[in-house]
Amino acid sequence: MLTSALAFAGVAALINITPGLDTLLVLRTSVSQGRSAGLASALGILAGCVVWGVATAVGLTALLTASRFAYDALRIAGAAYLVWLGASALWRSGKVAAGGSAGVERVVVEEGARGRWAAFRAGVGTNLLNPKAGVFYMSLIPQFTPHGESVFTMTLLLTAIDIVELAVWYWVVSGAASALADRLRRPAFRRRMEQVSGIAFFGFAVNLLADRGKAA
């Protein structure tokens, strides 16, 4: 069991630090709303991982990937949510461009008023509306479950390892992003960040819509 857990930890670490949607969300939120909001979005992502891990342990993710309708419904909902996030980011970039330094401060104040709860919801949404997260747990964890071990116990153990690694990674990302926030909140940098984030969210949405081969 220990050998399998260590092997999984190594593979999961490589996957977790690969730039992706969740890391982008934590990075952007930390810059625009501060580290506390960035960590709140990270907590939402981790909560989603807990749900996927438990669902995998009891076999629900297998039902998701076996059902074309369920997979496609979740995939389309996730893509729509990402389009909304992308459009929101581009809209904010326009406000920054129109208002200059005052526009930056106005956007920061408006986003700060939404609070950490909104950031947490965004983290939960991006994770739970992404069926690839469920496929990740269902396809990877069984490869590190030794023969004869309890599938339920090993799934929860490996999920816990993945969540701890993600928590550390998001802590580092949010700290680095908030440390650079003062510079990135200058109009030119902030506008560019919102534009890049918006385009990236659209790209993730397109990628999710194009992913039609995971369900049976």
Rank of each mutant, 00 (worst) to 15 (best):
D182R: 14
A37Q: 02
P187I: 08
A133L: 07
G99N: 03
N207Q: 07
A97N: 09
A7S: 10
A66V: 09
L64W: 12
V31A: 00
T3D: 15
D182Q: 10
G59N: 10
W171K: 07
G134I: 00
G213N: 15
S4G: 14
A205V: 05
A80H: 07
N127C: 12
W171L: 06
W91F: 09
L209K: 06
V83Y: 03
L24C: 09
A57I: 00
R212T: 14
M154L: 06
L157N: 11
V151I: 05
V151G: 13
D72I: 11
A13N: 08
G112A: 09
R192L: 12
R28W: 01
G34W: 00
A55N: 06
D22R: 01
A13G: 10
E111I: 10
F136M: 12
G112D: 08
N127V: 05
T65H: 12
V135Q: 14
I17F: 15
G44W: 00
P131A: 13
G115F: 09
T65W: 15
G103L: 01
T3Y: 13
P187E: 10
L208A: 09
G203V: 09
I199N: 14
G94E: 03
L43N: 14
G103D: 03
G86E: 04
L6V: 06
I15E: 12
T145G: 05
E105K: 05
N16D: 11
H147G: 13
N207T: 14
V104L: 05
S93K: 13
A42N: 04
A47T: 06
E149K: 13
G20V: 15
Y170L: 02
V206K: 14
A205F: 06
L158K: 02
T153H: 14
A160G: 07
V108L: 08
Y71Q: 04
L90A: 13
R212H: 13
R186Y: 06
A118F: 02
Y137C: 14
L24S: 13
R75D: 01
A160Q: 04
A40M: 02
H147T: 14
V11T: 08
G34R: 00
I45F: 01
R192M: 13
N127R: 07
P187W: 12
M193V: 12
H147I: 09
G175N: 03
L158A: 04
A80E: 08
S101P: 08
G86D: 05
R121W: 03
A122T: 10
T126G: 01
R190M: 08
P19C: 06
A5F: 04
L158N: 03
A7K: 11
V172Y: 07
F204H: 00
N207K: 15
L24V: 10
V50N: 14
G198A: 15
I163A: 15
T61N: 04
N127L: 07
E165W: 05
Q143S: 15
G175L: 01
A97D: 10
G78L: 02
T56A: 05
S101C: 11
F201D: 08
T29L: 03
T56L: 00
I199C: 11
V104C: 15
A188S: 10
G59Y: 12
A5Y: 02
V108E: 13
D182G: 14
D22C: 03
L6W: 08
S88L: 04
L90T: 03
